[in-house]
Each structure stands twice: as C-alpha cells, then as structure tokens.
Amino acid sequence: MDIRWNILIIIMGSALVTLIPRVLPLVVLSRFQLPNGLIRWLQHIPVAVMAALIAQELLIQRGISHSINSNG
C-alpha cells in the first residue's frame, strides 16, 4: 500500500468535512415536522442546484470565468 502520510491526512480531513454537511441535515431534520414554508422552499432546491451546476460547468468554467479564475 503506497499511501503517503500527507495524502492520507488530506483524504481523512477532506472526507470528514464533506461527510458532516452530507449527513447532518438528514439526521437532524428528518426527526422534525418541518414548517410548510420551509418544505415549499426545499422543494425548489433540486431544480435550483441542477441549473446552477449546469451553468457553472458550461458557461462559467469553459468560458467567461477563465479570466476571473486566473485572478484568484
């Protein structure tokens, strides 16, 4: 197993900080009856996230933002 220490720390650390936002809302929110307003808001998340990801992939990363990214 050729796994270097620094890479192992990167993997463990990034896995942990990715896991927490993934599981926390599911574990906490699924225990409560959420208010209607919040559910109505959450229902729009799928379309909103997918549209944003598509725009980011196709419009920003491949075109207009090249100059922006190189600044920071």
């Binding site: 990034s14 990715t18 936002p21 993934r22 926390l24 809302p25 906490v28 929110l29 959450l42 229902q43």
Partner: peptide, 21 residues
C-alpha cells in the same frame, strides 16, 4: 486543500436538507 474541499462540498447541506423530509 481540506478547506477548499469543505467549501466545494458545502452544497450537500442543501441537498441533504431537501431530501430529509
């Protein structure tokens, strides 16, 4: 690296909340 990945994956917070109900 860890902080950047945390930031990039923070959107899972929204996905997880939306699927929770």
């Amino acid at each position: 690296i860890i902080f950047t990945i945390f930031f990039i994956n923070l959107r899972h917070l929204l996905l997880s909340a939306a699927i929770a109900p």
